[in-house]
């Protein structure tokens, strides 16, 4: 953790990982707001947490498996109705393979 404010380059990198396209103005604004929030989080460093196990979920439940039986599914037509661009029974997307595939 660091008190330093995030550089515009770093904010752009995080934005790209977040799949967000930001203007220069947004980069500056979010950068300083995020720096303030991350600075506030410094207080967690005061704590001695050496012997504490992380807890991601209060339930403490492990994976629960359902019986491998077909259940009720949403019909394809219902999903086509909410998709932005379709060629039923498919959803249309720009070219996936090659440059810019986003993979």
């Amino acid at each position: 953790m660091s008190n330093e404010s995030l550089s515009p380059e770093y904010v752009r990198k995080v934005a790209k990982l977040s799949r967000l396209a930001l203007s220069d103005e947004q980069v500056a604004k979010y950068g300083s707001q995020m720096s303030a929030v991350l600075g506030y989080m410094e207080r967690l460093r005061e704590l001695d947490l050496r012997d504490v196990e992380p807890m991601a979920n209060v339930g403490g439940t492990t994976n629960r498996l359902d019986p491998d039986e077909p259940g009720k599914m949403l019909p394809n037509a219902a999903l086509m109705k909410i998709a932005p661009e379709t060629m039923p029974p498919f959803v249309k997307v720009p070219k996936v393979l090659g440059e810019g595939g986003g993979a």
């Binding site: 977040s18 799949r19 396209a21 720009p94 070219k95 996936v96 810019g100 986003g102």
Partner: peptide, 11 residues
């Protein structure tokens, strides 16, 4: 391309 579609739609 597809990457731009993700970023623009989300922004």
């Amino acid at each position: 391309d597809l990457f731009d579609l993700y970023c623009k739609s989300r922004s």
